[in-house]
């Protein structure tokens, strides 16, 4: 089967999809990155291949997410794209008339405004990660509720309590206060969902006109409590796509497919031997070349350095003798 691989290496999860020639998702894998993206990339690649019967022929690879450059080195990517473009491509591929995309991941939350399949405006959370997946994870762990049950429990609430939404630290102390006063846990959870929606609307979506259809994606879209809270706030239906948690990867795969097909290029995909055998290690060191003392990271396969980054002057990066960031060019 001819297919295209899309990979989204995020702060919390690493996602993989294979789409076929018609752009249909054939297989998807959602893994926790657990602080080790190199391991997650290999594991994800292995698993996604196992999930498909028969021989597969990967004709293109696209990577996105904060680990997109690392993934592109390990897998050999044809296209390396930022998360916003990847999410927008995936959403407008599945819902061509989408106008608003709410995407909440592990560390980021974004709003993307679309018009006729084109991003016309977007915003991301600035310096605050309140209301993103990792905050929810942390609160669920504190209340000893598996994150998977969070949403289900929250929607059981009949009377959500009011929780401060401005800041994650305030929200937490508010939650503890309400919990010690004896409010049922469901009401606190739903209150938190509503607080996070208020926070999102004030900080991320501020001033933007939210038009239907609204698509809610990213790992946090699994939380039905948040979806309900968004619907209540916006007063309209919020669509959660079937593959909500791997939309970035779908976008990357579609971009790779169109890129490879559009230019009639041979893929840079490295193949099984390269990815599955050999030892990938990342090392970091402080470069003493100048007073900047850059923290340089080196990715090696066995003893061969594949990539360097973190050096401001590009002295290490360029020592590999090629423009390893050439994919950054947008025009």
């Amino acid at each position: 089967m001819i297919c295209y691989l899309g990979v989204d290496i995020g702060s919390v999860s690493s996602n993989f999809v294979l789409v076929d020639q018609r752009g249909k998702v054939r297989e998807k894998i959602y893994l926790r990155t657990q602080g080790n993206p190199v391991k997650a990339i290999r594991e994800g690649y292995m698993k996604i291949k196992e999930g498909i019967e028969g021989k597969i022929d990967i004709r293109g690879v696209g990577t996105t997410g904060s680990g997109r450059h690392l993934a592109s080195i390990l897998l050999g990517a044809d296209i390396v794209k930022n998360e916003i473009t990847a999410h927008a491509v995936a959403a407008s591929y599945l819902y061509p008339d989408v106008r608003t995309i709410i995407e909440i991941g592990g560390q980021d939350s974004k709003i993307i405004i679309m018009e006729n399949g084109i991003v016309t405006d977007f915003a991301m959370n600035t310096v605050c990660a309140a209301g993103t997946g990792s905050f929810l994870d942390q609160q669920a762990a504190r209340l000893n509720i598996p994150i998977e049950d969070f949403g289900r429990k929250a929607v059981a609430s009949s009377q959500p309590v009011r929780i401060a939404g401005r800041c994650g630290v305030f929200a937490e102390s508010d939650m503890i206060h309400k919990q010690q006063m004896g409010y049922p846990v469901e009401d606190i959870l739903m209150g938190l969902c509503e607080a996070l929606v208020r926070n999102y609307m004030n900080n991320v979506a501020k001033g933007k006109r939210i038009a239907e259809p609204v698509v809610f994606q990213g790992g946090v879209a699994a939380n039905i409590g948040l979806r309900k809270a968004f619907e209540k706030f916006l007063g309209c239906r919020v669509i959660v796509p079937e593959h909500y948690n791997v939309m970035g990867a779908i976008g990357a795969a579609i971009l790779a497919k169109e890129y490879v097909e559009g230019y009639g290029r041979r893929s840079l995909f490295k193949g099984d031997d390269f990815i599955l055998t050999g030892d990938f290690v990342s090392q970091s060191f402080t470069c003493n070349g100048c007073a900047n003392l850059c923290e340089v990271v080196c990715i090696k396969r066995d003893d061969t350095p594949l990539a360097y980054w973190g050096d401001r002057c590009l002295r290490w990066e360029s020592s590999l003798g090629r423009g390893s960031r050439e994919n950054l060019k947008v025009v």
């Binding site: 794209k81 930022n82 916003i84 084109i118 991003v119 016309t120 991301m124 950054l328 947008v330 025009v331």
Partner: peptide, 15 residues
């Protein structure tokens, strides 16, 4: 920073 800059450029280029 890179993500935001790239996304902004992508958006302008595609528009």
């Amino acid at each position: 920073i890179i993500t935001r800059l790239e996304a902004f450029c992508d958006m302008l280029a595609r528009r």
